[in-house]
Simulated scan of single mutants.
Amino acid sequence: MSGMPTWEGFMVPCLKALSDGSTHSRREMAKLAADIVGLSDEQRGVILNSGEPTYANRIGWALSQLARVGALARPSRGNYHITDAGRQVLAQFPQGITENQLDALGQDPTWAITPYVPAKKPERPITIEPTVLDPSEQIQQGIARIHEAVSKELLERLLGKEPAFFEQAVVDLLLAMGYGGSDGGGEATQLVNDGGIDGVIDQDVLGLSKVYVQAKRYKPGNTVGRPELQGFVGALSGKADRGVFITTSSFSPGAVEYAAHHTSYRLILIDGHRLANLMIRFGVGVQTKDTVRVVEIDEDFFE
């Protein structure tokens, strides 16, 4: 792998491959970026434990990070197209750019890049410091970064689908979390005349108690306010004493306070950040790409 660029080193080659305004799939981009860098056959033959070529994995991560900050757009599934922000990056950093430099551009209002700001930032920035962290910690930090990128793409994909798809997705999530009883008693209601209820799911095996769901597919910045929760409570009247309100965006302070202090109904609020994390945790809308097996010495064996 000597001489092979890191994923950061593949960002500018990816931009160069798309600089003519064309649209390419991830598979096509792997070959184009590798050709621009001039990878040898030996370097292209290095394979990860998952079976994926190392260079293709790094190019995939480069594409993901460029798309994360708006330097690339995804006109369709698995396809990439350069944006005005991406052209700016290429003009300013023709020889290469780091992740920190890319993120820093998002703080400059004169640039077209729109940085990704998660709903809830971690208390400490996620960084990899090989001289400080042990290998297990580096693996955990790396997985956290992957989950952060996947979380953003999950929300983008949900926003790009029709409302009925999102409503069914939240029902699927609750079923994956163990609600619905042994026979999976859960369904999305009809879009017309649903009375403000988007999903109904059994809380126990016999279906004696049901959980009602409201799902709002809002863009970032369009928060769910107290009036929406009051409308949801009105829809619950006479049906149940508890409900789950799920959104791809976030809740206003007034909405959070209303849910916390409501005495007649138990309301659970799930914002976009928590929704994406739950989908990753319970395997809804995602699939396992690779499994890391960490071993240690079995002391009992040597006793």
Rank of each mutant, 00 (worst) to 15 (best):
R27Q: 13
R27N: 11
E28K: 10
M29G: 08
A30W: 13
S40W: 08
D41I: 03
E42P: 00
Q43Y: 07
S50D: 14
S50Q: 06
G51H: 12
P53D: 06
T54M: 11
Y55A: 03
A56K: 09
N57P: 00
N57Y: 15
R58E: 08
I59A: 06
I59M: 04
I59Y: 09
Q65I: 11
R68D: 12
R68P: 00
R68I: 04
V69Y: 13
G70E: 00
A71P: 12
R74L: 13
R74T: 14
P75D: 03
S76P: 05
N79L: 03
Y80A: 05
H81C: 10
I82R: 03
D84S: 12
V89T: 03
Q92A: 14
Q92T: 14
P94H: 07
Q95F: 06
G96Q: 07
G96S: 10
G96H: 04
E99F: 08
N100C: 03
Q101D: 12
A104N: 04
L105Q: 02
L105E: 00
G106M: 01
G106N: 02
G106I: 00
Q107A: 06
D108F: 01
D108K: 04
T110S: 15
T110I: 02
A112I: 00
Y116P: 10
A119W: 10
A119V: 09
K121Q: 13
K121V: 09
E123R: 13
I126H: 12
T127P: 00
I128F: 08
P130M: 07
P130T: 14
P130H: 09
P130S: 11
V132H: 05
V132F: 08
L133N: 14
D134E: 11
P135W: 05
S136F: 10
S136R: 15
I139P: 01
I139D: 11
Q140K: 13
Q140D: 15
G142C: 04
A144H: 08
I146H: 11
H147R: 10
H147T: 00
E148A: 12
E148C: 06
V150K: 06
K152H: 15
R157Q: 11
L158Y: 11
G160Q: 10
K161Y: 05
E162M: 07
E162R: 13
